[in-house]
Amino acid sequence: MSQQKDWPLWEVFIRSKQGLDHKHVGSLHAADAEMAIQNARDVYTRRMEGVSIWVVESKHIHASNPDEAAAFFDPANDKVYRHPTFYEVPAEIKNM
């Protein structure tokens, strides 16, 4: 048996009633996935914050490298045409 004594760390993602996406809310320790989900419910939804929970062991998260932030994200800066407000819509046109 391994010498590990700490329960592993899990990242918690919660979808709120109004929310469309699961959002990262924090982390916690749990011995297994089932317990992590229950703990997430007990810790992060005490005020009816959520309707759906995802957990993933923190060691499985791969993050983008902050040193490459410029290379990763700056190119999107000048692609304003991806945003709906870029386009002018005549006032008479509703529901677009």
């Binding site: 048996m1 391994s2 590990q4 004594k5 329960w7 011995a31 297994d32 317990m35």
Partner: peptide
């Protein structure tokens, strides 16, 4: 308690 939960998780895995 913490050891038991971990041991059980390992057995199950």
């Amino acid at each position: 308690v913490r050891e038991a939960a971990l041991a059980h998780a390992q057995k199950r895995a």
